[in-house]
Design a protein around this nucleic acid. Sequence first.
DNA 1: AGAAGAATAT
DNA 2: GATATTCTTC
Length: 357
Amino acid sequence: MIKSLSNMKNYNEKREKCCEYIEALEEERRKINVFQRELPLCLELVTQAIEAYKKEISGTTTDTLYGQPECSEQTTGECGPVLDLFLPIKQSSASTDEEEEEEEVDEDDDVEHESHDTGIDFVDKNMKSEWLKSVQLWNQPEAVPVSKWERSQQETQTLVEPIKENDNGAGGSARQKTEAERGGSGGSGGSSSRRGQRKQRRCWSHELHRRFLNALKQLGGPHVATPKQIRELMKVDGLTNDEVKSHLQKYRLHTRRPSQTVPNNRDSQTQHFVVVGGIWVPQASHSKANAVASRETTTGIYGPMASPLPSEWPSHSSFGREISEERSRCSNKGIVRCSSPAMSSSTRTKTKDAKMS
DNA sequence: AGAAGAATAT
DNA sequence: GATATTCTTC
């Protein structure tokens, strides 16, 4: 008797609590709604949390005692923890809102929403963490012990600071900040000064790559831009020349003529290009490009600002799926590609014919 | 010395 | 396949 009564009371409390949560969540959702495009999963999560709690209220005999789970904002937790993730964050929504540059509003934000029917909860969880990762400019060291200070600094700087502060390079654009240590030599973890350690892999996120492309565009294309210039233009702090160089190398490799794999699946992208002085141009504009191709050094045929997108990863690359159809479409159109950098660049006359060893 | 590009390693 | 590192050249 008494027990059931206390149970009842307990239940009422619980219910009340749930109501509060729901209200808070709904308010939260209204706020997030504004950023629906930027935070689609966030919205979804909140919605689901609301539903879950509503269900709970309606008496689905959930045994959970809504105890605080100790999920640590990263990848843990199941269904309940969602609240924990969102409630405390409430005030922060204004900090990292729009870091989009003005030019390309990509609608690739609606990331893969495919698997949505069955195991919503944990799937959703995974999605969320992935999404979070992709939002960051790059992944932060996780396995490697990093001092808390460094991490927080990295977070803040990475997410907000370098974005678009002063685009005209007025201030100290050359911000190289000790790329020497990424091995987590921070005081916490023992065994400092692991110098021979390999650098932590940097994952080139969406945003990072977009900046890369942006810089490339301004500099006149992947074959005339140099890693250093790119890095400076990107204004991403912590980014090293080597990283840019490596990425550029990959990019160049990818943007070469995509060989004849997949003969002509989409309007036969590969066949409309023709080599003009070492430069791939659309066949139609062949003659015109020929006229231009002689002096492309300054602003060049790459059309720094002219085309919304200079060149993108080929459609098959991993980045390709992040690119919306619009992009892939225009990547077939007015793109010019250099097949042989040595010949196309007139700034640097590298005759690497004698280089063979 | 330092940067870029290619080659190679992980 | 993507990134890091090394090697070579300039």
